[in-house]
Every structure is written in C-alpha cells, then in structure tokens.
C-alpha cells in the first residue's frame, strides 16, 4: 500500500497530479492533466515498471462536458494496476497518441475515435473503421446517443404485443369513476 503512496509523492514532484485513489494493494487510480498524460505514462512505463498496457478506454461524463480517459497499466514486478486518468473536453475531443509506446495503443485509439469520436492525431489508421463499418451517425458510445431511439427508428417491433400496467388496469377494473388523486 505504502509503496504506491511513496511512488505517488515522487511523481507529484514532476507532474501536477490532481487526484489519487488508492483502491487496494493491487489497484490505484491517479488523475493527470491531459497535456502531461503521455509524458507521465512514458515515465511510469520506463522508470516504474508499468510495462503492460492493460486497456485504454473512455467514460463519457456528459454532464461535465468531458471524456475521462483511463489508461490502465500493470506492473508485473509489484503486481500492481495503475489507472491513469485524464479529462479532455468533449468538444472536438483530441488527445495525444500512445501508439509509439505500445503498438496496440493504435487499436484502442482507433476504437475510441469510432465509438466516442476522440481524435488521436498521428495514430496509425485512426480514421479507419474498426467495428462499425459504414456507420455515419453520432459515435455510438457517447452518452447522448440514444440506443432506444435508434433501434425504434431502425427496426420494427413485432406486431400484436400489448401490455397492461398493473396499477392502471386495476383502477379501470375496480374503481373507474371513483375520485382519487386528481
């Protein structure tokens, strides 16, 4: 537990880390400003043994107008996972690429471009479609993409289905005209 806290104080001397969440002896999250993120990742990869990029993904915090990027790194020596998080603006979202650190970073970035619309200039093939060939609507993992609305517009429901609300139905059956809550 303490090892990672010591590490954190070391990192803090070089980077303006804005948050630190020590979940367990195996997992911690650290918040880094966007412009220092790739430098920070490079540091922890090369100096602190976080050599394994476990995953890289985004969370759409629509209410705050940001995407929260999470780079999960793993240190095989200390058996510790470090989630490096940074918030970037949702409008014309763009982030520095990490494909030079891990080749599969490019795959993650390609997916993030497609699913969230986050651009990673310079990342190989970032504009190529990954999962959604021929998709032109809003990047579907964004919170404001309404899957239900999309599915209702795209598909048709099976005809002949009708359901009754228990409370409403009992009202119709048992006390249709009685005054209750008005």
């Amino acid at each position: 537990m303490n090892i990672i806290e010591d590490k954190f104080s070391v990192w803090q001397k070089r980077f303006s880390l804005s948050g630190f969440e020590n979940k367990s002896s195996e997992l911690a999250f650290v918040q880094v400003p966007a412009d220092q993120t790739v430098a920070f990742i490079t540091t922890v990869r090369d100096l602190d043994g976080y050599k394994h990029l476990v995953f890289f993904t985004a969370v759409d915090l629509l209410e705050d107008g940001v995407f929260r990027l999470t780079y999960m790194l793993h240190n095989y020596t200390t058996k510790h996972d470090l989630g490096i998080q940074t918030d970037i603006s949702r409008d014309s979202a763009s982030m520095e690429s990490i494909h030079h650190l891990w080749p599969h970073g490019a795959t993650y970035q390609r997916e993030l471009k497609e699913m969230f619309g986050i651009d990673f200039p310079g990342s190989p093939g970032v504009n190529e479609s990954f999962v959604l060939e021929g998709w032109f609507a809003m990047p579907p993992m964004r919170r404001d993409f309404d899957t239900k609305e999309y599915s209702e517009a795209t598909f048709f429901p099976r005809p002949g289905r009708k359901t009754f609300d228990t409370q409403e139905y009992m009202k119709e059956q048992l006390y249709p005209s009685e005054a209750e809550t008005w």
Partner: peptide, 29 residues
C-alpha cells in the same frame, strides 16, 4: 487477462462497464 472496469455514478444504472478481453491485442495487433 480478462478484466472488467466498472464506473458507477450512484444511480440505478452503471455509468460505464468496460470489458478487457485478451483477444483485443492478440487478434488484431
């Protein structure tokens, strides 16, 4: 390594569930 990353915002629905499958790197890059 198979992993789940989960974010909750305190509501009845999960905010984000990310599934880390090992094939992601194995099958592509």
């Amino acid at each position: 390594e198979y992993g789940f990353y989960m974010v909750s915002d305190g509501t009845e629905l999960p905010r984000r569930v990310y599934v880390r499958g090992p094939s992601y790197t194995h099958a592509v890059t």
